[in-house]
Design a protein around this nucleic acid. Structure first.
Length: 753
DNA sequence: GTGGCATAGCTTTTT
DNA sequence: GCTATGCCAC
């Protein structure tokens, strides 16, 4: 395709407003994009159009918030058939990348480690210990201090400025901790999440070697979800766009991260920042029915501080939204599971068409139970993320040490994992000695005698150092063998084997890391251990979610941003939950809660169910609730109210062994996968329909632990464990391709090999 | 130094 | 209700 034809293709099927945004080349551009208005399409086509207009791909930088968004954008640009080479990245990985190259100017080598929130907390604790702060006397807990530090970094405030109206001695102490914390990080050759941004700002503003050069590195800069940028991100976006060709897209009504330092005025005042900016509004919605859009629009209209927007759609009216009033969260969960089962029975929606959103992760537990009872397959996005598990973090700590021996947080974490008679007392002694000598914990270990450590601990130190030395002697590419060697040297699985409940899971999590490394290598053949570690550090909850996989999706409202589903259920429309209890009032935080609901409703294409319960257990105690004030804001003519009691389940609470499936086979034979066009750029293949053979197979427990099986999507794997019975029977299968999966046999179409 | 038991604190939301 | 931490006994 010639560039002229390509330009044409970029505009095909676009509205005048979309065209305007796509064809804009030089100068600042603000795209205010309502939900479902084709924003992603505009961004990707604009990039393709730039390239077709002669811009070198390497001169383009596009920044998103999640890896998933970045990945999709990359894919879609490639699909347009333009030359590759544009850098599409998240804020954090972009900054990490720059810091690997230029970090030396501010004290980081290219092997620096990225500390996540829990690593930061460890460092704060260590800082407080070094300053000999009495935890009994000092009123703040380490976690509180860590939060303040993060807060300060996000907003570019000095330690003194963050304390607000706290007593001056306290503020001073926090400032001292902050200072010490930062020193520890520098010594450890580490940067926390916030540092990635903050240090990048330094490179742009202060460091002589980079402040002239970096701002001109890219000629065209795009930032998506601009409404969620914080001060540091704002400065990075501005700073990288010395050319003035900065294009930002977003929707102030979908700003939901103020609590994390996002500053909505970044988008609201873009025109002030860039007086020559062109502004394009995308207000036509292609996603939702008229009723859904009207409901969302009426809710958000209650926000005082906002720019008016005229959302509209040519889509059909659609059905009314429905509100399910329930007695408590159990009834809520049952009612929702019943509903979804009924939709599937009627062939209205496949499991993967449906999403259930909630305000806090804790709400997922009850709904999961009900979905299992109905044998509805589901997937949770978020919760305890794989890379947050203890056993996985331990293994990663070893790997980080291999890469960066100065990383004291990691060294401290695993010095005695598995137990090797190297307890807190010795480690603290070594740490203290090391910090007095200005050497790392690892170095201190090599001179344990001088540090005054003797006895059984000395042998432990030897064996620990031996592990690190052996691994350091290995090549850093490919990564998987390093992980394997680590498991072997530490006898990690044996260590986990007697870790009580869930030992099995922990062992497979540990083994899974080898697969993760192999997978990484497949995606990045040249990838190093460092690259793998960076990826694991910067992964986010939604990143693991894949629209093509089956199952009802469960996630928080925050995680839902940017996604769309044919049917959406939003749980818990109650005062205190949605809107969530606000410690101090109010205005701004309430408006953010409202935006959260707006985001939730506008994810839906055709159907929305809202629920509320009269009582709900919280902290293990039952509390009586008031319906959410947002319910009153919904237009009555688009919402059907289903009163309390009518959701109560009739009798059959138990799942009988041979209960007929709630799933009727679709009219078409299940053998041929059904392909459905969902939207212009997206095709979904249904393959998880009920079929009689699979059902029969499930009823007779055809698999046992140890069996080799194959799955139509994941390929070959090994059964780790089988549980449940009848329709609920499920198996944990370890696949070569994707690692450990829990599958409902009825849906999984597993074949024995 | 290790392992078991009690208790505090937790629920926003995440890169 | 669950978990992560801290304290105590061996």
């Amino acid at each position: 395709m010639s560039f002229e034809e390509l330009k044409e293709a970029c505009l095909a099927g676009c509205t005048p407003a979309q065209r305007e945004a796509i064809t804009h080349i030089d100068g600042p551009l603000l795209v205010l994009a309502g939900p479902g208005s084709g924003k992603t399409r505009v961004i990707t086509r604009r990039i393709a159009h730039l390239i077709a207009s002669g811009v070198r791909p390497g001169d383009i930088l596009a920044i998103t918030f999640t890896n998933k968004a970045a990945g999709e954008m990359k894919e879609r640009i490639e699909a347009m058939g333009v030359p590759k080479g544009a850098l599409v990245s998240t804020f954090h990985s972009f900054c990490a990348r720059m810091l690997r190259i230029y970090g030396r100017c501010i004290g980081l080598t290219d092997a620096f480690t990225i500390y996540d929130t829990s690593d930061s907390l460890s460092a704060v604790k260590r800082a407080m210990a070094e300053l000999e702060i009495d935890l009994e006397q000092f009123p703040m807990k380490p976690a509180g201090v860590a939060k303040l530090i993060s807060h300060a970094k996000n907003r570019l405030l000095t330690p003194e400025k963050i304390m607000g109206d706290r007593p001056p001695e306290e503020a001073q102490t926090v400032a001292r901790i902050y200072e010490r914390y930062q020193k520890l990080l520098t010594q450890a050759n580490a940067a926390d999440f916030d540092d990635l941004l903050l240090l990048m700002v330094k490179l742009l503003q202060e460091v002589p070697e980079t402040r002239e050069k970096l701002p001109h590195r890219f000629r065209y800069v795009l930032v998506d979800e601009y409404q969620d940028t914080n001060r540091a991100q704002y400065l990075i976006a501005r700073g990288m766009a010395a050319s003035g060709n900065l294009c930002v897209t977003g929707d102030p009504d979908q700003s939901i991260y103020a609590w994390r330092g996002a500053d909505i005025s970044n988008i609201l005042e873009f025109e002030k920042d860039f007086p020559t900016a062109k502004v394009v509004r995308l207000e036509q919605n292609y996603r939702s029915t008229k009723k859904i859009l009207a409901a969302a629009d009426r809710v958000i209209a209650n926000n005082k501080s906002r720019k008016e927007k005229a959302l509209w759609t040519e889509n059909p009216d659609g059905e009314p939204l429905r509100l399910l009033r329930c007695e408590d969260e159990m009834e809520e969960a049952n009612a929702v599971a019943d509903e979804i089962a009924a939709w599937m029975r009627r062939g209205e929606f496949a499991p993967r068409d449906v999403a259930i959103f909630y305000r806090v992760n804790a709400q997922s537990r009850v709904i999961e139970r009900s979905l299992r009872a109905e044998a509805i397959p589901y997937r949770i996005v978020a919760g305890t993320e794989y890379y947050q598990r203890k056993e996985v973090k331990d293994l990663l700590a070893y790997l980080r040490l291999v890469e960066n021996p100065a990383d004291n947080v990691s060294a401290q974490r695993v010095a005695n994992v598995p137990p090797r008679r190297l307890g807190d007392a010795s480690v603290t002694k070594l740490l203290d000695w090391g910090s007095a000598q200005g050497v790392s914990l690892l170095v201190a270990m090599t001179r344990a005698g001088e540090a005054g450590v003797r006895g059984g601990a000395v042998q432990g130190i030897e064996s620990f150092l031996n592990v690190i030395r052996t691994l350091r002697a290995m090549p850093r590419t490919p990564v998987a063998p390093v992980v394997e060697k680590l498991l072997e040297l530490t006898q990690f699985e044996r260590h986990l084997a007697d870790s009580g409940d869930g030992a099995e899971d922990r062992m497979s999590n540990a083994r899974e890391l080898v697969n993760a490394a192999a997978e990484y290598q497949q995606a990045e053949p040249e990838g190093t251990l460092q690259g793998f570690l960076e990826q694991t550090a910067l992964i986010s909850d939604v990143d693991g979610w894949d629209a093509k996989q089956g199952g009802v999706t469960l996630m928080t409202l925050h995680a839902a941003k940017g996604l769309e589903f044919p049917a959406v259920v939003i749980l818990g429309l109650e005062e205190g939950l949605l809107p969530l209890q606000r410690s101090e009032d109010d205005g701004h935080e309430l408006e953010e809660e409202r935006r959260l609901l707006f985001v939730g409703i506008t994810r839906a294409k055709r159907r929305v169910i809202l629920t509320c319960a009269d009582s709900r257990a919280r902290y293990g105690k039952r509390e009586y609730t008031q319906p959410s004030r947002f319910l009153e804001e919904l237009p009555p003519d688009v919402v059907t109210d289903v009163p309390a009691g009518s959701n109560r389940r009739k009798e059959t609470r138990e799942t009988p062994l041979f209960r007929p499936s709630p799933f009727k086979a679709r009219p078409s034979a299940p053998s041929a996968p059904r392909v459905v066009k969902r939207s212009e750029n997206e095709e979904i293949v249904y393959d998880a329909e009920y079929d009689e053979d699979a059902m029969q197979a499930a009823l007779h427990a055809p698999f046992r632990a140890g069996d080799r099986v194959s799955h139509p999507m994941y390929g070959a794997g090994k059964v780790m464990d089988v549980s449940g019975y009848g329709e609920e029977m499920r198996a944990s299968v370890h696949f070569n391709s994707v690692g450990l999966k829990r599958l409902v046999l009825k849906f999984a179409h597993l074949k024995k090999l």
